[in-house]
Computed example of a mutant assay.
Amino acid sequence: MSRTKYELDIQNRSLFRYYLGIGARLKRYFYYSYSRYVARKKGAIIGENVVLPLSLAKKANKNLIIGENSSIQTDLIDLRAKVTIGSNVIIGSGVEILTCSHLIDSPDWEFKSYGIIIEDYVWVATRAFVLPSCRKIGYGAVCAAGALVTKDVEGMSVISGSPALHLKTRGQVHSNLIVPSLLGGDLKIYIKTWNKRKK
C-alpha cells in the first residue's frame, strides 16, 4: 500500500527533525485541546482532532455539531439554530454563516431559524458568506473565496460569485489531506504516523 505525501514527509524525517516537529505542534495542541474542551462544556458535540478558534468555542452551544478532523478558522457562525458540520471539512478565515432571518412578508416581521448541514469534505473558502436560505452544502462541495451562498449546494459542486453559481464539478475530495495539519493541530496524528514508519 502506497504512503501519502503526509506519511512520507513525516516517516522520512531524522529523529532530530521529528522532535522539532513535535515542538512546533505542542502549543497548538494545547490551544485546540482547550478549545474543544470549552466547546464541549458549553454543550457542543465536537469530534476528535477538530481545530477551532477559542472565540468560537466560547460562544458554542448545543446547536453546534462538528465531526472529526475538521478545521474551522472563523468564529462568525450563527448558533441560534443547529449547525451540523461533517468530518474533514475546511472552513476558512472570515467565513460568515447565518442561520436565522425574518419573514419579510409578515406584518409582524417574525423571526425564523433555519439551520444548516455542511457535509463531509466540504471546503468553504476565505470570506465566503452563507445566507440562511442555504440549508445544505453537499458532500465534497467547494464554495470559493468571497462567494455569496444563497441556496443549497449540490455535492461535489464548485461554486463562486455573488450570488454564487455552479462553475464545475469537483473531480475528487481531499481524502489524503490530514486536515488538522493545515493549522498545526495534528500532534497525535503526527506521532502515530511517525511510529508507523518502516524500521
Rank of each mutant, 00 (worst) to 15 (best):
H174A: 10
Y190H: 15
V179I: 03
R170D: 03
L183F: 11
K168S: 14
N176L: 11
L182H: 06
I189W: 14
S181R: 04
T169G: 05
G171V: 05
Y190T: 03
Y190R: 12
G184C: 07
K168I: 06
G185Q: 13
L165Q: 06
G184W: 08
L182E: 00
S175H: 10
S181D: 00
S181V: 01
L165H: 08
L187D: 06
H174G: 06
K192Q: 14
G184D: 06
L183M: 14
K192L: 14
G184N: 09
S175I: 12
A164P: 01
L165A: 05
N176R: 11
I191V: 14
G185L: 12
V179L: 07
I191D: 08
V173A: 00
P180R: 08
S175P: 02
L183Q: 09
T193S: 15
L182G: 04
N176D: 15
P180V: 05
L165W: 02
N176I: 03
L177H: 07
G171C: 06
V173W: 00
G185R: 14
L182T: 02
T169D: 08
L165T: 01
G171T: 10
H174D: 15
S175N: 11
G171R: 11
I189A: 11
L182N: 03
L182V: 02
A164D: 00
L182A: 05
K168W: 05
H174V: 04
L167Q: 04
G171K: 12
I189P: 02
S175A: 15
R170H: 13
N176F: 12
L183D: 02
I191E: 09
R170W: 08
T169L: 08
R170A: 09
Y190W: 15
L165S: 07
V179H: 05
K192W: 11
L183E: 05
I189N: 07
D186H: 09
I191Y: 09
K188F: 14
D186E: 02
Q172D: 02
T193C: 15
H166R: 13
Q172V: 00
D186P: 01
I178F: 12
L177K: 09
K168N: 08
G184L: 10
K168V: 05
S181I: 01
K188D: 03
N176Y: 09
T193N: 13
L187Q: 07
L187V: 04
L167G: 00
I189K: 10
L187A: 09
K192E: 15
I189R: 10
L183P: 03
L177D: 03
R170V: 08
A164N: 01
I178H: 11
T193W: 14
H174F: 13
K188H: 13
